[in-house]
Design a protein around this nucleic acid. Structure first.
Length: 269
DNA sequence: CGCACCCCCTGCCGGC
DNA sequence: TGCCGGCAGGGGGTGC
């Protein structure tokens, strides 16, 4: 669920909290990917939210002090804006309470998510992150450079956040279908024309996914509670054994690096 | 360098 | 109907 398009959708949907001042932080559960410490309260209470950024799959909430809240949704995290009086739900771990009577709630059943505060330039999580695939920095030339001499399957490379930031298992599968390239292909063996197709496919698939509000597979929702619709446009993801939408050949499922890959053996070479 | 394998945790689904 | 194993979008660590 939360790959680049979902995080971007969440970022946009949280625009109403920009300008709000954090009056209190209600910590209900500290055991996230990293333990929530009192530092989060110290750095956020009394601060005004000035801007929301996204860095790969991370969300950055910039504060008037110059600090920022760094958040990652893991597999099951959501941020939702609600009235402060809204009853707590299971797995509501953090609530940022604003002076206008609204609250930003972080809910995460699996607790693989991350929320911490600090100087934005000092976040170790962002230190080795590759360029955003929708930025100009992610160019065909960079893709050639990234893949040169790499023996790894191209799908693993696409999902490596150090090389390009924000692509997870769903979109890696969809991008490779769009480009007509098999997930298992060694990156170094792709032809220049294929790399260019991959570059175009990456941007097209991610942009379309953002435009449809991301993918809602189980219960993903954006900050205002809206689901996404890109799951209705999956061409291969989770379609193992079903006919390819291009050629009716049965879509195959394979496991690479512990994650499911789906591909059409005829359309993807 | 790159992979397989393990962990973190809860929820859901299919099979029996 | 109910239990249980397997599997799931994330990242991180270890050992080969």
């Amino acid at each position: 669920m939360p790959e680049l398009p979902e995080v971007e959708t969440v970022r946009r949907s949280l625009a109403p909290i920009v300008g709000q001042t954090i009056e209190a932080l209600d910590v209900r559960e500290r055991r996230l990917r990293r333990r929530v410490t009192s530092d989060l309260s110290k750095r956020t209470i009394g601060q005004r939210i000035i801007r929301l950024d996204r860095c790969g799959k991370y969300l950055l909430i910039h504060l008037s002090s110059g600090d920022a809240v760094l958040a990652h949704l893991g597999m099951s995290g959501t941020f939702t804006i609600v009235p402060v009086s809204t009853p707590l739900e299971p797995h509501d771990h953090l609530r940022f309470l604003f002076t206008n009577g609204s609250a930003l709630v972080f809910n995460d059943p699996r607790r693989f998510g991350l929320v911490l505060a600090g100087r934005p330039e000092a976040f170790e999580e962002l230190a080795h992150m590759g360029p955003d695939p929708l930025s100009n920095e992610f160019s065909p030339a960079l893709l050639r450079q990234m893949t040169r001499g790499r023996k790894r399957p191209v799908k693993n490379l696409l999902m490596d956040q150090r090389l390009v930031a924000g692509i997870g298992n769903i979109y890696a599968n969809e991008i490779l279908f769009e480009a007509g390239v098999r997930p298992s292909r060694q990156a170094r063996n792709l032809r220049l024309a294929e790399l260019d197709l991959l570059h175009t496919a990456t941007r097209r698939v991610l942009a379309e996914a953002i435009a449809t509000g991301g993918s809602s597979i189980s219960d993903y929702r954006d900050g205002s509670g809206q689901p996404g619709y890109f799951q209705l446009r999956f061409r291969v993801y989770d379609r193992g054994g079903q006919p390819c939408l291009n050629c009716a050949t049965l879509v195959r499922r394979a496991v690479h690096a512990g994650r499911s890959s789906f591909y059409c053996p005829k359309c993807q070479r």
